[in-house]
Design a protein around this nucleic acid. Structure first.
Lengths: 219, 219, 219, 219
DNA sequence: CATGAATGAGGATTCATTCAT
DNA sequence: GATGAATGAATCCTCATTCAT
């Protein structure tokens, strides 16, 4: 009873969010199918029954969890991109750092879930994410690259699409694999170094061949 | 009846392999947990019971399916790497093309399964693959890059580890995502172009710059 | 509907006990292996799923059913045995009557289950019962017999161990076989007569003979 | 092939018997339901398929195994009983020794199977055995006892039926429990001593009260 | 709102039985 | 006759979902 009382101090309006957070974490940890609603409940500090007050069913829970977080994942960056005064390389750095620079536990969970836990459980959600997230990002980066090429900042013969793709999916994948760093020797690299080096390499791969590029890494 | 007759024309000694192939395909398509043994049986042209003649249980089936195929996935390439007469860039091209050049339906299935289907279902197998496959490949490529740096073929200030990582995981991920190309507009690029451009960009990112040493990464 | 309503009148806290009782009965009736959890559920007025709320699995159910009942089966009798003021024969009568005098439906079920239903299904439980139940009883009776021999109440040349064994296992077996009395002509004897006569014969077999010492058993 | 050749040296006409023997043993060891036909096959040196050449199905196998052996179990003793010249006690001794004196591995298997493995698997066979075996034996012994009572050899107030029952079922049960002697401390008594002492006690329990009986144990 | 007992469909697994070889 | 691959019914067990309290 004492315990129960304690639980009640949390505002009920936070419940749904708590459940979503818990779900995200647990799904990412154990996989969607391997997670019982009871597990989610436990992680959220409620019983499984309570979940049904806020979500129609397990799949709805998954969908909402993804939806909510995957939006923030590849969020507001339009301004950065639109600011044509800055050199493309600078804008690229900003964008990529915004996306991959700091990976909180929560964001890692979403990405993991989306990248390896969902394709078969919620194919539509997965596709939607693919379109709205990675693919959009890749397209945006490709656009920036092309702008750089037009401006003469990047070499014109580079394959902008493939460059963008490799950068984004490489970084995504690596970010997820970091989690296995302990058990897989050599799998891990610091996220900071990962992003910095990735950007450096990326920009170098676009640098005009002969003359020296304008590489300045100040951050 | 006709069906039954047909079935008997296949030699029983091929059964295990047929089942493994079927399992791989179906697992990759629908996900391990979403696949009933009966589905595998159906795909292999037998009933679920028959599967138990050859495999102890569902997990053993999964494990064997992975094991068998993932071996061939990142196979013999030592010779290429050891051949110090050729320039490093040439050897890198050979190695990467060997791995990602032609992706058969079967290989695609394994990779898909491994990349997004089993991290939670068979964590050990997943880790083993990570170690034996991608990580080993990345290490190998990183080694080659360093060799190129020592030889002066590549610029010395590039981050070999990150470069290798991005290349391998980027290509892997893209290869898997190809499968969603139809439903995700713009997601797809021909595998050939993907690999060629990736290599071109990769090598360009390592090319010595006109000026040298503008960038120093910790480590 | 009516049935459903009825079901809710029973208090949920009695469920586990109801299930145990049902299990005991059904197991004894049809045998452990021949009983589906669904049968137990039916007998207890719940569905199989409900059983899993209270018991981890079928074996745990069996074990608990045995455990609970077999405890009471050969219960507290120490006092009787210790009371050295009464003649041994009196104490023996009390003890045996306590054990075999009144056999309720439930106790019969346990004994049946233990005697012919589970030696192969739960060998450990069976052995534990053998040790804690029959064997302990036999030992206790043998001890009493020896006491009687020392006191001169019984003839000293009787084999106390075998006497105890025959009495206990004979009574047990007969008790179980009573159940087949209808279909096996002549198999049955009233339990009352069985116990009374058994005691009479038992005590008579230990009574000092006129002449003494005609027989010496090794040991 | 060499192995196969060897197997063929056994005469095929012995097959059924070999299978029956194997079945009996394995059934008694592991229980009927816990035994797969493959196990029986293995024990008999054939494959499960072969069993179906000789027996319609698993139950038929069980039935035949029981039938064959349970006949010999309580076999020819009529002559002994009919020989009215010998004292009843002598005839009783002969009969009981014939039944329980030497228990071969095979006979133990039958008894075990019948006593604790079968009641639920083949109730009819079990009942038939109960009637033809133990019950018949008990009846026969009871008859002998009554004869002894009429002749004045035994005390007339003893309960012949119960005496016979206890003797037979006690001995049966003990014989089966011998098998657990190792794991159940104190459970075991040598079969020889068991039978001798049982007889001694049995006869003593029937001895006329006052005067001394004619107990002679020569064997 | 929350609980947790109860339900029942779904799927893994076992194994008696069949049958082509 | 014998083999052993294949079948499929049977049953344990899990867990999403419902609902009385």
């Amino acid at each position: 009873m004492g315990t129960k009382a304690l639980r009640w101090e949390r505002r009920p309006d936070e419940r749904p969010q708590e459940i979503l957070d818990a779900a995200l974490t647990v799904f990412a940890e154990r996989g969607y199918r391997n997670t019982r609603l009871e597990d989610v409940g436990e992680a959220a500090g409620v019983t499984k029954g309570a979940i049904y007050h806020y979500f129609a069913n397990k799949e709805a829970l998954l969908l909402r969890a993804i939806e909510q977080r995957s939006e923030e994942a590849f969020g507001r960056i339009e301004e950065i991109v639109r600011d044509k005064t800055a050199p493309v390389s600078t804008r690229l750095r900003l964008v990529v750092r915004r996306w991959f620079g700091s990976v909180t536990k929560e964001r890692l969970a979403v990405v993991t879930l989306l990248l390896q836990g969902i394709a078969h459980e919620a194919p539509d959600a997965f596709r939607r994410w693919l379109v709205g997230g990675p693919t959009a990002s890749m397209r945006l980066i490709a656009t920036l690259v092309r702008e750089g090429q037009e401006r003469g900042e990047f070499r014109p013969d580079a394959d902008a699409d493939v460059a963008a793709r490799l950068l984004v999916s490489g970084l995504l994948q690596q970010t997820v694999w970091q989690q296995y760093a302990e058990s897989v020797p050599d799998a891990g690299v610091e996220q900071e170094r990962l992003v910095d080096s990735a950007l450096e390499l990326f920009l170098h791969s676009l640098r005009p061949s002969g003359r020296s590029g304008a590489l300045r890494l100040k951050r």
